[in-house]
Design a protein around this nucleic acid. Structure first.
Lengths: 345, 345
DNA sequence: TATTTGTAATTAAACGATTAACTAACTTCT
DNA sequence: AGAAGTTAGTTAATCGTTTAATTACAAATA
């Protein structure tokens, strides 16, 4: 026997209006709380509210968005969602957005420019009210196109300093300088720096901060500066570590400029039987779950992820609501976390 | 000087139609590729396509969705997005959905029933075409409400066996039985099991599988079975491990029934100076980044996350497109990964 | 009494797209 | 030549809301 699917009739404003013998405008007014100062009588309001509940009315957000020209949706474009930093960032952005009544649609670019372009167009078609973006390399033109179109936009974590675009970042140079000084204070004299071989302003700022600190202490050694490729992260970090460890003067400290580099660096050190915190002092970027199982804390630079998320949402919604046109570049301070327990072995 | 925001006029079908002096219906036909077999002439098609490109036309998905009654959006409701397993699941679901032309809106319930209800209503208002859900405890009624409303739905990872609802899960009982046998084969005779004190069918099945294996080998000991609370995970796991380790007959193997328990368990063992793979053999649930830095691989049960994601999307879209009414419960086989390197110390 | 004010609703257009039904002008066939 | 078929479009309704403008009536004021 063929079972016909019961075509559950959708409940709309009109359904309620018809059942009550009123106009759908009145129903809309009541259901949106705009029935104050003599728009709709108390009794009718009550009846409408009751009927809506009875029929289990669910408003159609699409129709509303179409009418009012705002979708209360924001596009979040992340460079690499499998990276824990971005995952946490996305989580907080979503949470803050929700608090403000916005939905977030997440897109992942995998650090690819063409994917970024594709996702932006896709989200534009979905009528997002604005974007929060961690831009990929060389996406200046794409970003620029959005800003000249007056589309609300905030870059986060990364930015292009030459562009007139709102951003929320941390003080990459300063905190890296300070973090490197911390290694020096601990007595390290042969300090390595491992960074990406990429055109990312924020990462290069970190490297610059570390290098400056080393130079100002007179212990800078170009042999100890390594650059790894994003697409060969594991191999390159491993090679860099092994080279540093086998130099005639052995390295006694390393500064990693990103969390992905940090994780692979720590793994390489463990594999090479270098005892962290004894043979070598480390400074990582970002807190990391991968270090959770270690019996000690590796010093790291803690980014104010939650605050960045909140600021980004605030900036964006300000632009959306007020059509605020002024350019704002927020720089938030990262924090050094060094409360390590010394490993006892 | 006040700078007036230039009210960038939105480009719609009508804009194109007007500029070309044709009807918007024709434009719609062409832009949707429905201009075949004598609907629109070659030249006009060309002109419309060119004009659309020239004006940088972006279709309004909201309007389309409103008209056709499908949003090509699916709601993904995750119990705990900070959990790596769910993160990976979400990533793959999103990726497969995108391939099929669907957008995913993710909601996070934090394992809370009322948040789950709230998110479902929110997404219903956004006119999602269907749901993929990892349901929280005691959400049977909520799930049931969706199914009786004929809303396309697939549960994933977890399910309620008593409910007539589509699901994609793994063979929790069987793989746990097999995994425990593996520990026994390695010579373990005092095997602990740490699981959640919760009403989750899938986790309880894992526990049942382990317990059955132990019983069938005649080495079941109720003292070695621990249940921890979700909200006090760290403390409870730590206490359980310490108790097991300090029993008069020391434990020589542990089976963890989830990845979060696994991580905390491994951390506790390391903190207690128990040498994993020497003093004790482990079996974890799920691959885990937190173990990435260890110089050895801890045996684990690998869930086919990608395949689960794909199957879930396929099932859901089938329901959406074909109004397919038949009940399907997919059970996929998990895999035992035991290719560990022995730690050399 | 005539006018204003206040209260409680309705009307109707609009948002941007889709699509069934229709028209009009040519071709082709018998 | 008339009927039928093909080609190339248009018309108009519709999806579910919102909202400015309007109406209708009652009460208050001049």
């Amino acid at each position: 026997m063929i079972q016909l699917k019961e075509k559950m009739k959708k409940i709309s404003l009109k359904t309620i209006a018809n059942e009550l013998g009123v106009s759908s405008a009145t129903v809309s007014l009541v259901l949106n709380g705009k029935d104050k100062n003599g728009r709709v009588s108390k009794e009718l309001s009550r009846k409408i509210l009751d009927k809506a509940a009875e029929l289990n009315y669910v408003p159609n957000t699409l129709a509303k968005s179409l009418k009012v020209g705002k979708s209360r949706t924001i596009g979040l474009i992340i460079a690499d969602i499998s990276n824990l930093f971005f995952g946490a960032l996305a989580l907080h952005i979503q949470s803050f957005a929700q608090q403000k009544g916005y939905t977030v649609i997440i897109g992942n670019t995998n650090e690819k420019l063409n994917e970024m372009e594709h996702i932006i167009n896709f989200l534009l078609a979905r009528q997002v009210d604005g974007f929060i973006i961690t831009p990929t390399e060389k996406s200046q033109n794409l970003i620029n196109k959005l800003t000249v179109s007056n589309i609300p936009l905030v870059l986060v974590d990364r930015t292009f300093p030459e562009l007139k675009v709102n951003s929320v970042t941390i003080n990459n140079y300063e905190i890296s300088y300070k973090a490197t000084e911390e290694l020096i204070k601990k007595g390290c004299r042969n300090i390595g720096v491992i960074s990406y071989k990429q055109d990312h302003f924020h990462v290069n700022e970190r490297k610059r901060g570390a290098v400056e600190a080393l130079k100002n202490s007179g212990i800078f050694n170009p042999n100890y500066i390594a650059e790894v490729r994003y697409d060969f992260l594991k191999e390159d970090v491993s090679a860099a570590i092994e080279k540093m460890v086998n130099e005639n003067i052995r390295i006694d400290g390393i500064f990693f400029t990103t969390n992905s580099i940090s994780i692979n660096g720590v793994k390489s050190l463990i594999n090479n039987n270098i005892i962290i915190q004894k043979d070598i002092q480390l400074m990582c970027f970002d807190e990391n779950d991968a270090f959770y199982i270690l019996p000690y804390t590796i010093p790291f630079i803690k980014q104010p992820i939650k605050e960045m998320a909140e600021k980004a949402i605030d900036l964006l919604i300000e632009q959306i609501d007020d059509n605020n046109n002024e350019l704002i570049k927020v720089i938030q301070d990262a924090e050094l976390v060094t409360n390590e327990k010394i490993v006892d072995q």
